[in-house]
Design a protein around this nucleic acid. Structure first.
Lengths: 230, 230
DNA sequence: AAAATAGTGTCTATAAGACAATATTCT
DNA sequence: AGAATATTGTCTTATAGACACTATTTT
């Protein structure tokens, strides 16, 4: 192996925290307190600590931002363009986190101005993100879309108990697609092994027949047959 | 954001280079020349250079090891357990590279004793790899198996021109599966858009009707309908 | 009753998998 | 001719998607 002095690199962990609020996909953004990009929106994140695994760093950052532990978290990938941070060489490992839309404001956030921002506005450039965070967000959303097809990930957007119609809403929102046929969707979800299980309860909305409530059946896992994207 | 001294981290890029030789999936391993794990097999890799993107570092390492450019290369993920290297804190970004089985020995390898090793022996522990490289290899093989289902990746295991039977052999080898029905496979490959295109040539083996030759149709892309794993 | 949503049943088109049959080569 | 592999065709079964219909609630 050729021997050259290794680059002096700092490693950070950045988070793409997604939820669905007001019928739209939203991403948790902070307002940067320091240069560069001071005052501009960015993904939350921070430096990897000396004795910390990458996954642990992502879980710690997530708890610092949201006050919540045990949320779904998976690695997106590493980003290391040499000029992605103008101060110094930084390689970041990005993680995707997904949570239900909780009514309480996010507790414990140490960032100035964390806010749920419509993902579409950051993806199409109406909101300009710092660094290469728009690229990371785009990869994250694409990953979420694919995982919705092939795993039971959609359930982690939902609260502990949810209706099939709410689960269908997750697919429609994340895929940004027209109305999925409620009847075929219903039959397919209940027919898939290990997706949801009935609680026995029902929930009455304003009008119409009350819907049965379901909960996530165990951990997020592969889905067979997959939910095909239209 | 909390301000703590960032960890002093070195970033490396490691490669999982796969090919199919003698009917088996093989991975390119080097024999380590330095401590730790001196003399033991490991994935090839090296330090990220100061002005280099991660993808560029992977391509450079791949060329140093194989003498080849333009091979298929994609990121697997980042690995950063604090004790994964006993000397210092190292975060590595792993890449999957796939190449056809070339008859020439690998040129330009600057490692002592690069060798094509059966992947199964490293996966089941008959061969013990340095660091966490067995984990990385396992993730790489799983990624390759999934990409075979959903993309035209199988063609990059093949030389420029190949028969449908050879392509089928790639699936059987990487999936480590029983014989795939040659007739259904044949029909499905030719029916998929943008998978292979006929060269017009034929190739005669020792016996049997000569098979038509095909080449990869463009770049690796998504496959619809996917090739379902048995 | 009317409106609205939940849930079931039925039909059609598509694709997967099993496998028969034909085609083309070598020995 | 016989053996071997390639290629095409046919049949059965499973699933996606369209959509009619029934069920249960509120107004």
């Amino acid at each position: 192996m050729s021997r050259r002095p290794p680059a002096t690199v700092a490693v950070t962990v950045d988070l793409v925290v997604l939820t669905i609020r007001d019928g739209g996909l939203r991403v948790l953004l902070i307002e940067r307190g320091n240069e560069p990009f001071r005052g501009e929106p960015a993904l939350p994140g921070g430096f990897l600590r000396p004795e910390e695994d990458l996954d642990a760093a992502a879980a710690r950052e997530l708890e610092e931002e949201t006050g919540l532990r045990g949320l779904h978290l998976e690695q997106i990938g590493a980003y290391g363009a040499p000029d992605r941070d103008p101060r110094q060489r930084i390689v970041t490992v990005a993680y995707l986190a997904i949570m239900p839309d909780l009514p309480e404001p996010l507790a414990g956030s140490d960032a100035s101005g964390a806010a749920w921002t419509p993902a579409a506005e950051a993806l199409d450039g109406r909101i300009r993100l710092a660094f290469d965070h728009a690229d990371i967000l785009a990869d994250a959303v694409e990953l979420a879309r694919t995982k919705l097809e092939q795993t039971t990930l959609a359930t982690v957007f939902c609260p502990a108990e949810f209706t099939i119609a709410e689960l269908r809403g997750v697919y429609e929102t994340v895929w940004n697609t027209d109305r999925i046929d409620p009847r075929n969707f219903h039959r397919k979800v209940l027919g898939a092994e290990g997706f949801v299980e009935a609680t026995g309860e029902r929930r009455a909305l304003e009008t119409g027949r009350p819907a049965s409530l379901y909960r996530r059946a165990g951990e997020v896992r592969g889905l067979y047959p997959p939910m095909l994207r239209p």
